[in-house]
């Protein structure tokens, strides 16, 4: 890894660590949320930005992580550590099944198929209302949210835990896209027929990308539930499939650092607009249209195109 790549991404983590000591409580809490959601965006970006597969159903992976963690934790009392692992495994298993089916299609059909599977997962959560309590959701008690002795309901610990997860996701994907297999994903995005005729098994690489992407998204969902003490069906709704697409488009698809800035920007845009109107999804809608029209590369993508060719 080149020094400037390391400096840029390490620098971001350092700045976020410094902000832990500097930010007032309100923004401190917001940034913790932004970092967890940025993990979700990073997971989405592995599939959309690096492999070129546009999913409209990633909420199912976020929700699989969240419920796979939350339900056993709340009803079986298996402890936060095991519950987090259960969340990861749920998301990975779902991603494997969805990948095996959905990857038989491509393009628009892939988008619709993922949308439909995600909708089915959301409806299943509603159907199992006896345990999930549907839209109302399950509140996780403070005592349940102790992770290796750390009380995740404490704002300081929560922030640092979010930062740790974010740093892990950031460097994991940075490492991944520089691996031979990661380079193949990019090759598939650019020209999958050519990649196939260089002897790469496209289906297996795409499937791996779906599983990695789904698992990272699930990790974000599980962490979100643990850190903020709530597991609800809202997070499985179609909006939560659209959000990561929006974040990644805004921040820059196929960049490591872009998703974080996409989440940050969108989070505060919606936060500021909520003072004016309750129709906050209007902002999302306008942003989607403007981005597809005028800046399909996103923030970091434009930066890479104009001056930083080395940006991973």
């Amino acid at each position: 890894m080149t020094a400037r790549v390391l400096a840029l991404h390490g620098g971001l983590i350092a700045v976020l660590l410094a902000l832990h000591f500097l930010l007032p409580a309100y923004h401190h809490g917001n940034l913790a949320r932004v970092m967890v959601l940025a993990c979700y965006a990073i997971g989405y970006n592995v599939l959309f930005g690096y492999t070129g597969l546009l999913s409209l159903g990633h909420a199912m992976f976020f929700a699989a992580g969240m419920y796979g963690m939350g339900l056993p934790l709340h009803f079986l009392g298996i402890g936060a550590e095991l519950a987090f692992l259960a969340g990861l495994l749920s998301a990975a298993a779902l991603a494997l099944v969805v990948g095996l089916l959905a990857l038989r299609t491509a393009g628009v059909a892939f988008m619709i198929v993922t949308l439909m599977f995600s909708e089915a997962v959301y409806l299943t959560i509603l159907l199992a209302g006896k345990w999930t309590r549907g839209d109302e959701g399950v509140v996780l008690e403070r005592a349940e949210r102790v992770f290796f002795g750390l009380d995740l309901s404490d704002p300081d610990i929560r922030y640092l835990a979010a930062l740790a997860l974010f740093a892990l996701c950031l460097f994991l994907t940075l490492w991944l896209v520089r691996q031979p297999a990661g380079r193949v994903l990019i090759a598939i995005r650019e020209n999958d027929e050519r990649a196939r005729l260089l002897g790469y098994d496209i289906f297996r690489h795409k499937l791996a990308a779906v599983v990695i992407s789904g698992t990272i998204s699930g990790a974000a969902g599980a962490a979100y539930g643990l850190l903020f003490g709530y597991v609800g069906a809202t997070f499985a709704e179609v909006q939560y499939s659209i959000f990561p697409l929006l974040w990644v488009l805004l921040g820059g698809a196929g960049t490591i650092i872009g998703p974080f800035f996409g989440v940050l920007f969108m989070f505060y845009l919606i936060d500021l607009s909520s003072g004016i109107t309750s129709a906050y999804m209007l902002i999302a809608g306008i942003a989607l249209v403007l981005l597809t029209l005028f800046a399909p590369q996103g923030l970091a993508g434009e930066l890479r195109r104009r001056r930083m060719r080395w940006l991973p």
Binding site: L54, L56, G107, V108, M111, I242, L245, L249, T277, S278, A279, Y280, M281, L282, A284, G285, I286, A287, L288, V289, T292, L293, P296
Partner: peptide, 29 residues
């Protein structure tokens, strides 16, 4: 909008998702 995307299938879907929220939320308002 759509004309300027050259009716690219994937980008058109993203744009019509945006349109969905714009129409829905303006109606709400």
């Amino acid at each position: 909008v759509l004309k300027h995307l050259d009716y690219d299938p994937e980008r058109t879907i993203v744009a019509t998702i945006g349109l969905l929220y714009i129409l829905q939320q303006l109606t709400l308002m």
